[in-house]
Design a binder for these strands. Structure first.
Length: 258
DNA sequence: CGGCATGTTTCGCC
DNA sequence: AGGCGAAACATGCC
């Protein structure tokens, strides 16, 4: 489920953790660095932030990074801000837990913070270097995008998915942004006009904000249901195109995206 | 059973 | 050297 929008939803939901002290921690060692638990127990949570798709828990010691991968989800005090994964049944087995944190104040007597990830593509980090992640999609402006695209000739979709170009965009959001921008995903980045890039950054700010308010990445016009159904363009009724671009399944309208 | 899935990293080829 | 595409990772679900 996690693109930047989901990470933002979880970041907001985790704010009640700020000020608490971590009393106990458990992690699946296969997805956590050595010494993980020892570096967190006894630490006070100072802030919960987000960089791109990564949720960061700052403590008075290390900063815990939650990289949700393809199927990771979070619960705070036993509540899941996003309860169902789009491409899974909604099952939530204890054996899929990758992180459990308890604090000095656990109102519901359950984990203050729990990460559950069936597919185990997610990771836990401590003081990870995230400096390579580009400007955030939710506030992206055209000058930032131009700067990051200089010298790049790959398909615009592949570059928007690259976290070092723009932070937070995943497969669904990129398709949605390009859909509203009227730019075809297979266009070479160096052939786009400034006007194209303006429409892309405007779509990032406006459409992503509205998807965030609606609950996340699955709330675009190109819904997962429409993607799977191989339907028609909701704007003009043209049969949607489908191809692999940037290594990911891509949906677009060849009539209004050029 | 075959194929697909909201992601990232690695490898080899230009 | 660095950009780029394909493969690998790991597992569940239809």
């Amino acid at each position: 489920m996690p693109e930047g929008l989901e990470a933002e939803i979880w970041r907001r939901a985790a704010q009640p953790l700020v000020g608490r002290v971590i009393h106990q921690a458990w992690a699946d060692h296969r997805v956590a660095p050595d010494g993980f638990v020892d570096q967190l127990v006894g630490r006070r949570i100072d802030a919960v932030r987000r960089v791109g798709k990564v949720v960061l828990v700052d403590t008075d010691g290390a900063t815990l990074g939650l990289h949700l991968g393809m199927t990771g989800r979070l619960e705070v005090d036993g509540a899941a801000p996003i309860d169902r994964l789009e491409y899974s049944s909604g099952a939530d087995l204890a054996e899929w837990d990758r992180l459990r944190l308890w604090t000095d104040i656990d109102p519901k007597r359950v984990c203050a913070l729990r990460m559950n990830d069936p597919r185990r593509l997610g990771r836990l980090s401590l003081d990870a270097d995230l400096t390579a992640i580009g400007p955030d999609a939710l506030t992206l402006d055209t000058s930032q995008l131009v700067e990051r695209l200089v010298g790049r000739r790959a398909a615009i979709k592949a570059l928007l998915l690259d976290q070092s170009v723009v932070g937070g965009l995943g497969n669904l959001c990129v398709d949605e942004v390009l859909f509203w921008s009227g730019v075809a995903p297979n266009r070479a980045a160096d052939e786009l006009t400034l006007d194209d890039l303006d429409r892309i950054t405007a779509a990032c700010r406006e459409r992503l904000a509205s998807m965030l308010a609606a609950g996340g990445s699955t709330n675009g016009m190109l819904s997962p249901a429409l993607r799977a159904a191989r339907g028609v363009c909701p704007l003009d009724g043209t049969a949607l195109e489908r191809a692999t671009i940037g290594g990911r399944t891509t949906i677009w309208c060849a009539l209004h995206q050029r």
